[in-house]
């Protein structure tokens, strides 16, 4: 399955610079948010929104989901 990605702030660096934080990623069926983060190589503390709603790392993903990832700092912590 594929999900649409939007990486905010400093997390943009995980995608090619030209993408400016936007892209798609292929995941195995049944993958959860934690799997996506591992695949992207996210090591920082982050806030994840799936289809505009904040979700935990255990949240199962569906094909076509729109995922936004914010670093903890940019996610509204400060």
């Amino acid at each position: 399955m594929r999900v649409e990605l939007r990486l905010h702030g400093g997390l943009r660096e995980l995608l090619p610079a030209a993408a400016r934080g936007r892209g798609e990623v292929e995941l195995v069926p049944g993958a959860a948010v934690a799997d996506l983060l591992a695949q992207l190589g996210v090591q920082r503390k982050v806030v994840v929104a799936c289809n505009d709603a904040e979700v935990p790392a255990t949240h199962p993903l569906q094909d076509g989901d729109k995922i936004a990832i914010f670093s903890a700092v940019s996610g509204g912590l400060i």
């Binding site: 670093s71 700092v73 509204g76």
Partner: peptide, 25 residues
Amino acid sequence: PTSDVAGLGKYGTAEVVSGQHRAGG
């Protein structure tokens, strides 16, 4: 570079605009 202030350094405090909007804040 690997800390939680990495984005703050690169994008400044302005980095938080997107997150604040998402959080409704």
